[in-house]
Design a protein around this nucleic acid. Sequence first.
DNA 1: TCAATACTTGGCAATTTCGCCAAGTAAAGC
DNA 2: GCTTTACTTGGCGAAATTGCCAAGTATTGA
Lengths: 113, 113
Amino acid sequence: MTTLLNTAQRRAAVIKALAHPSRLLIADALQHGERCVCDLRELVGADLSTVSKHLTVMRQAGLLEMEKRGLNVYYRLRCPCLMSFFECVDSLAPKREKRERRNSSTGSCKLRI
Amino acid sequence: MTTLLNTAQRRAAVIKALAHPSRLLIADALQHGERCVCDLRELVGADLSTVSKHLTVMRQAGLLEMEKRGLNVYYRLRCPCLMSFFECVDSLAPKREKRERRNSSTGSCKLRI
DNA sequence: TCAATACTTGGCAATTTCGCCAAGTAAAGC
DNA sequence: GCTTTACTTGGCGAAATTGCCAAGTATTGA
């Protein structure tokens, strides 16, 4: 009972840390390997402080890990399975209420469970 | 370029619709099949209007579909692959900065890509 | 030791989200 | 038609999020 809620709260903390266009852009870039903050700043196109705060949020949620080398700080994804999820998210058509109710156990999702 | 941003914005809209403990509780319950709003209200333990608004957000994001039968409205998940993602989310340890940097291509994720 | 670079942190205003209450709608039963 | 049930919608204050600027920290190089 209370455990279900706890699970939901833990999950929500992680998912919230992902629920922002700039942070998704960052996650996508990190899929190909680590990047320093200034690279990500260029990608996102926001103030360096803004990007840094986004990265802190993602790191505290457990999505990223960081490592300082010289003057730079490099961030990496901690869970590559994110990309599977993005495919799943992308498969949700923007048009509402598509007519595909009868095979509701598989839906339109391109991924196997 | 601009397409990358568009993709991120579309994804963020869906993920935001998921980034709340009550909505995750709802998603979890719907994994086992459709539920009417009053069932979900009981599960979430909030005002009926609050639950209804959560459901509207999730439906507009493409996560759910609804069907009215008699007095009740039934909601269903549109994408069962969500559950794979939750396993992934759950695998992100709450303790920060675990010492597991060398195999960064697979990480601690229990799912295959 | 002094300056430059690459960040992080504090603070704050603007925007968004959240959850309740009250009011509205739609189907069912009498 | 009237009532009940099962929602949905409007509205509003409270709380959280977002993004910039300014200031602080840490490493490098001269």
